[in-house]
């Protein structure tokens, strides 16, 4: 008796693990399929480019404020904290290098992607989820309009185009913020700040690698947001859950991808 009960509970647990695993794999496959279809049907979003432009406006231009303001503060904090430690070693002139390298290599792409997931990714998920809930996507299919070509692809390319622009702006504004704290406020030498930076930041190895990172994050964040919206259960609760999942999965993916990309880029 007891033995069969134990066996039953064991099978139930295993079944639970199995079903969760299968669901994950299924969703991964569905996401990959959507990604593939988006690439196949993305000709439309370039032929009728005003669709993509509209989405760049909503994802990119509307994110400008949060990106610029947070970049400014991140740069200022970096300069303050960096100066605090560097002056102990008598090398406070290296503050420019510290701020520029940490922004261009890491913080620019990563923080931009995290903010993008919160600001634009959620909007995309909620919009598409609601379109699905109100059966606008089905209506498009009824009218022989492919919703992937008309709705998904323009948003995808808008995200992929916006992300590197936002990340570059983030780095530049952050460096300006660091400059404002380091040079006029703390009194680090102006020339040393820029010349040390120029001597140590490489265009190909630092700036272009940062750009590559941000493009990869753009693809990942936008695709996750689109898939969560497209896959959301057509209820109010379903859309809200999908929106939450977008932020969580995007953030984790960005951080994990950042480690993978960095380990490929840093040649030791």
């Amino acid at each position: 008796m007891i033995k069969s009960k134990l066996l039953n509970s064991l099978t139930r647990t295993l079944r639970g693990i199995g079903s969760r695993m299968t669901e994950r794999v299924w969703r991964l496959g569905a996401g990959a399929r959507l990604f593939f279809l988006t690439l196949v049907y993305s000709g439309e979003s370039f032929k009728r480019f005003h669709l993509t432009l509209r989405e760049i406006y909503f994802t990119g231009v509307m994110s400008l404020l949060i990106i610029v303001v947070s970049a400014f503060f991140v740069g200022m904090v970096l300069a303050l904290q960096g100066y605090n430690t560097l002056q102990k070693y008598g090398s406070s002139e290296a503050i420019g290098v510290l701020v520029a390298l940490s922004l261009v290599r890491e913080l620019g792409p990563v923080v931009t992607a995290l903010l993008f997931a919160g600001r634009a990714g959620t909007a995309i998920t909620a919009e598409i989820g609601l379109m699905k809930t109100t059966e606008q996507l089905s209506a498009m299919e009824m009218m022989a309009v492919n919703p992937i070509a008309r709705v998904i692809a323009p948003r995808f390319w808008a995200g992929v185009i916006s992300m590197p622009i936002l990340a570059t702006l983030f780095s530049m504004v952050g460096i300006l913020g660091g400059y404002i704290v380091a040079v006029p406020l703390i009194g680090v030498d102006d020339g040393a700040f820029w010349s040390q930076m120029q001597a140590n930041v490489d265009f190909r190895l630092d700036i272009v690698n940062g750009l590559i990172k941000s493009i990869v994050f753009g693809v990942a964040c936008t695709m996750i947001a689109l898939f969560e919206g497209f896959d959301a259960p057509p209820t109010a609760e379903g859309v809200s859950r999908a929106t939450t999942r977008t932020v969580v999965i995007s953030s984790l993916t960005v951080l994990a991808l950042d480690f993978v990309l960095t380990s490929f880029m840093l040649v030791i």
Partner: peptide, 11 residues
């Protein structure tokens, strides 16, 4: 911003 990074920040 990219030009700024390339010219003012990079080498």
């Amino acid at each position: 911003a990219l030009l700024g990074l390339a010219m003012k920040v990079g080498n």
